[in-house]
Amino acid sequence: MTETDGSERPPATLIEPIDMSTLDASFRREIQSMPDGDELSACFACTTCTAACPIANQWEYKPHQLIRMIILGMRDEVLSSKEIWECLTCFQCQERCPQKVRVTDIIFDCKNLAAEEGKIPDAIRNLARELLEKGQLYVITADWEREDLDLEPELPGLSTEEFKTILRNTRTGRIVGGE
């Protein structure tokens, strides 16, 4: 081997080397078992998803990297990333994937796994609380505006109780209750 300057530093690389001992090989199977993960391993890292993403330029982990990280088993990094929650869910990456990987849907799956572990942004937790309390995202406040337009002041047919009952017993209830 050629002698260099004699220092013990690792060689310079384009990205930080991945510590193999921290990888979780079961993460790939976990995602594949979820509703949209069938095609995950068809990814050949062509980066088309990243080229299609309108916000990848400000992400540390680009869409193709997130998919590669899932395949490698970088579970903590993916589930703790801000990127999965900033995903616009615009489906442009998924639409253009030549391998039919359901990229956006897989990011939805990641958010569900993260939420199950309590890794959820405060703004989203607040939204969960509001959904549970109000039984809907938006509540009619200006009923006079509706009447001016010949509409019923309240929304005909609306019933919010069933929505609350269902979500109290699913993860939404656990997220809000487990604060």
Binding site: T89, F108, L131, F163, L167, I175
Partner: peptide, 13 residues
Amino acid sequence: GCCGSPNLRAFDY
């Protein structure tokens, strides 16, 4: 009632 929006899909599929 409400559909929950894609937000609900994100944390409680």
